[in-house]
Design a protein around this nucleic acid. Structure first.
Length: 637
RNA sequence: GCGCCCGUAGCUCAGCUGGAUAGAGCGCCGGACUUCGAAUCCGUAGGUCGCAGGUUCGAAUCCUGCCGGGCGCGCCA
């Protein structure tokens, strides 16, 4: 028998016993097994409320009857040791010794495969990260990277075939802004000259551009031309809402207009805007000098990203560059146009009517001048990936601000390729906010990914130096890197994906309590046990059967739920299930470890052997869980 | 205005395919280091699960309405 068979065994016992009461056997399927509130009530149980109307007696009586039937079904060697009732509930208590043998044997024999799902042919493609090449990555990207990578690992471990892909946004107006600022203000300096990481170097020019543009726009607002624009807006009926709202506050009304008008200004009268747009057009026309600069700056950024990914421990199976794929949607849109799925509007743009898809309005897929929009690109890349890999499922790890975009994307894709929508998933996650509010890339108000990693590692370094002063520097640095990143990863992944994260610098750097370092510590302490007690004993049923105290069984039962935890995490695409589990396992073991009655050095014979085997199984499982989070282990902290 | 998400202990968050006394960490208070690693452990206090209805034997969980917060509804990405 394997762990996974316990529940199905209990299920069939349950069904048989319920059927024996004379009710329709299908009623049993509606009643789920669950863990009782306290372990001393049993391992698994189920309520009998729903049988009452059919048997015309109280749930309590029914529970008694069902329990009696169950007892009749059990044999001497059954893993179920006892069937009890607690009011309307029927509870199974498993034989502790048998359970310990089963769980620990499986954990140690399966080794790295413990908890792994059965391998299947199903192919999943996970897209994550998808950075722009105009600035370095920040905390928001960190969450995306960690979430995407971790979900990939979880799905992989659950038995699916995984392809990790990145889509780098290496073209567009944003990179042109950095380019323009670089041309205007750089004097031709390079990251080598300044000693900066390439993405930071380029990001500096992006921020510079936005600052210069803001100044230009501010100055423009005092011109007669700006005043005219403002006045004609006031005359327009579109502004009625705001005129009413700010009737008594002319300053705020004015502010509202210039806020709203900024983009129009950028695309119209702005000198800097013109420069950026010129670069964009030149880029599309293949202008050599522009392409040259573009390539140079992108290279700097991508080299910087490579370092960041490497430090985070993230690798992709395939990296798509938007510059290579952005036009591939055009053909698809034309195909849809020919099939009559899309239409051309009065201006000449190709649009998709969203009404028949259950949404409102129309979505432009190709501008009148034939250029593409975001949606066109995503249609194209989706189609291309289907041709490249033909995955059964495709997951986009993208922030929840884009939920509408993906809703529309999936519906349009389904129109072009019927049935496709069921294979597409948007893993939507919440934004990361700073204590002082939202992050703003344009203004450089962000928590930079590299700086954050540095800070975490630095703190870990100090913590180690404080504890183990005589450690040589290389070893201290090595551990600090692991511990600092473990803290960061665990902290970020411990939030459910949909939660808007309030980034708390104090708490994120915490190494105590429910944290990555806590799990690493638990692991290292077991490693230390192994050193101290001279290695692990061989598997031995008698030794395992000697286990049975509450603290021991708490660890055994937690190990027992590992396969189920992996499955749940995979189904829900939720790394939080793993962090939660790891903390529970580690604290169950720590509790046992600190208990005077469970001191390995003071125990002898089978008790000691059994506990050691339990410790080993725990250690392996901690490592497996941490591995899914992208956290390597340390033999010593 | 319409759509999606959130509102649970002082703080940050789990729990939300309905089930048995609502959990964790941090913080507070009090204990445990000459003995397996104290980045640990043990214990105490702390909650009208936003509010009001409804469905149900049973609701933090499902439904409706309201209040409060976030996001989206661009020929930006």
């Amino acid at each position: 028998m394997r762990i996974q068979d316990i529940d199905s065994h209990l299920e069939s016992l349950k069904s048989e016993a319920i059927a024996a009461t004379g009710v329709n056997p299908s009623l049993a399927d509606q009643i789920a097994l669950a863990a009782p509130p306290s372990p001393d009530m049993g391992d698994r149980g189920f309520p009998c409320f729903s049988l009452a109307p059919h048997l015309k007696t109280s749930p309590q009586n029914i529970a008694e009857t069902v329990a009696q039937h169950l007892r009749d079904l059990l044999s001497e060697d059954d893993i179920v040791a006892q069937v009890s009732t607690a009011g309307p509930y029927v509870n199974f208590t498993l034989d502790p010794a048998r359970l310990a043998v089963l769980v620990i044997t499986q954990a140690l024999q399966d080794a790295h495969a413990f908890g792994q799902g059965t391998p299947r042919d199903t192919r999943w493609m996970i897209e994550f990260s998808a950075p722009n090449t105009n600035k370095p990555q920040h905390l928001g990207h960190v969450r995306n990277n960690l979430l995407g990578d971790c979900v990939s690992s979880i799905l992989e471990f659950s038995g699916l075939q995984i392809t990790r892909v990145n889509l780098i946004n290496d073209r567009g107006i944003h990179i042109c802004k950095s380019m323009v600022a670089y041309e205007l203000f750089s004097d031709g300096e390079t990251p080598e000259d300044t000693g900066e990481k390439g993405d930071h170097f380029v990001g500096r020019y992006y921020v510079r551009f936005n600052r210069e543009f803001a100044d230009e726009y501010d100055a423009w607002q005092d011109t007669d031309q700006a005043e005219q624009r403002f006045q004609s807006w006031l005359d327009d009926e579109a502004s009625i809402k705001w005129r009413e709202k700010f009737a008594d506050e002319p300053t705020r009304l004015r502010h509202k207009f210039f806020d709203h008008y900024e983009n129009t200004y950028f695309n119209g009268d702005s000198d800097l805007g013109k420069l950026a747009r010129t670069r964009l057009r030149q880029w599309e026309d293949g202008h050599e000098e522009t392409l040259e600069l573009w390539k140079r700056m992108n290279r700097w950024v991508l080299d910087g990203f490579d370092e960041t990914y490497e430090r985070l421990g993230i690798e992709f199976d395939r990296v798509y560059l938007e510059s290579e794929t952005y036009e591939s949607g055009k053909e698809l849109v034309r195909e849809g146009l020919e099939k009559g799925l899309f239409a051309t509007d009065e201006s000449g743009a190709v649009v998709c009517d969203l009404e028949p898809l259950g949404l409102q309005g129309k979505k432009v897929l190709l501008r009148a001048d034939g250029t593409t929009v975001y949606m066109t690109q995503d249609l194209g890349t989706a189609d291309r990936r289907l041709r490249d890999y033909d995955p059964d499922h495709m997951v986009y790890v993208v922030g929840n601000e884009q939920e509408y975009h993906f809703d529309v994307l999936f519906r349009i894709l389904a129109k072009l390729r019927p049935g496709l929508d069921e294979r597409l998933h948007h893993l939507s996650y919440g934004m990361v906010e700073l204590p002082e509010g939202k992050m703003k890339s344009r203004e450089g108000k962000v928590v930079d990914a590299d700086d954050l990693m540095d800070a975490m590692v630095e703190l870990a370094d100090e913590a180690i130096a404080q504890r183990y002063g005589d450690l040589d520097e290389d070893e201290r640095k090595r551990r600090a890197e692991v511990i600092g990143l473990a803290a960061l990863k665990f902290y970020v992944l411990d939030f459910g994906p949909r939660t808007t994260v309030q980034f708390d610098p104090q708490r994120s750097i915490d190494f105590q309590g429910r944290t990555g370092p806590y799990c690493l510590y638990s692991y290292a302490r077991i490693a230390s046990l192994e050193r101290r007690l001279g290695g692990w004993p061989q598997l031995d049923d008698d030794a395992l059967s000697a286990l049975g105290t509450d603290k021991e069984m708490k660890v055994v039962r937690t190990l027992q739920t590992w396969p189920d935890t992996v499955e749940t995490a995979a189904t829900q695409l939720n790394p939080g299930r793993i962090t939660e589990y790891l903390f529970e396992l580690c604290s169950a073991f720590s509790s046992l470890y600190n208990d005077p009655d469970h001191r390995l050095v003071e125990l002898q014979g089978e008790r000691r052997q059994g506990l050691l085997l339990l410790a080993k199984a725990t250690q392996h499982t901690i490592a497996a869980g941490l591995d899914l989070l992208g956290i390597p282990t340390l033999q010593e902290m």
